[in-house]
């Protein structure tokens, strides 16, 4: 609170960019204090990504076991419902189911972000009154969504992989352990993570831009 600035400006400068981690702090604070909603959104991501990772993991495990071509193991594989002659081919039905679950997840995140925008119209307007640029508003929503997506995707990918392993051990006992395709499993975890993170960002794009387009005067007119 020093002495008043007395310099006279020639023209009004443009408001500068704010470091993105400032938006991250705002997003994180919002998530922490609206934990229940964040957890519900995250559980959707966890389920969808767990399903995806489970399917990818199971596919790589069965492919590895089929490749062993052991008679006793082949019996186990057939008992588990694996068609050893067509193993390794993609199952259209499964692809469709995974696609549907991911789509449901995407819609779920978008819906939750839209709710978040609607209930924070006043907050957005206030931030703009304080000098926030549109890009700052966009950032806070993208970060909020991707934080939920990334956390959900990590848990979902690990969960899906663990379930795939448990099912494989139950069906194939020691064979599964002896022929575990570690690299392929890690790859399916990575895929699950990337898809979950990507999904959460795509889902937030429209709500984030809707939020940024709100005019401060409209935002302040909303009654609580």
């Amino acid at each position: 609170m020093a002495a008043r600035k007395s310099t006279r400006l020639q023209s009004i400068p443009e408001q500068g960019q704010i470091p993105w981690h400032v938006a991250a702090v705002v997003s994180w604070a919002g998530l922490r204090r609206r934990l229940l909603r964040a957890l519900i959104t995250m559980s959707g991501v966890i389920l969808a990504i767990a399903f995806l990772t489970y399917m990818l993991g199971t596919e790589s495990i069965t492919a590895a076991l089929v490749a062993v071509n052991d008679n006793a193991l082949n019996v186990l594989l057939q008992k588990a419902g694996v068609d050893i002659f067509s193993a390794g081919q993609t199952d259209d039905m499964m692809v469709m189911l995974i696609g549907l679950s991911l789509l449901t997840c995407l819609v779920g995140i978008t819906n939750s972000m839209l709710m978040s925008v609607a209930e924070r119209v006043r907050e957005i307007g206030t931030l703009k009154c304080l000098g926030a640029r549109d890009s700052f508003i966009v950032q806070t929503y993208l970060i909020e969504s991707s934080l939920q997506g990334i956390i959900g995707a990590v848990f979902g990918a690990v969960l899906g992989c663990v379930v795939a392993l448990v099912v494989a051990f139950a069906n194939y006992r020691g064979y599964a352990l002896a022929n575990l395709p570690v690299l392929a499993l890690l790859r399916s975890i990575l895929w699950g993570f990337l898809v979950g993170a990507g999904l959460s960002i795509v889902a937030a794009i429209a709500p984030a831009y809707m939020a940024a387009r709100k005019q401060p005067v409209d935002a302040l007119r909303v009654e609580e």
Partner: peptide
């Protein structure tokens, strides 16, 4: 003024005070 200049103007020249305080509740 364009949008970014208005943002600068509000930030540096105006201090807004509201009837319902309008604090960011999560901060």
């Amino acid at each position: 003024l364009n949008g970014r200049q208005l943002a600068w103007f509000r930030c540096h020249k105006i201090g807004f005070i509201f009837q319902s305080f309008n604090l960011i509740t999560t901060l």
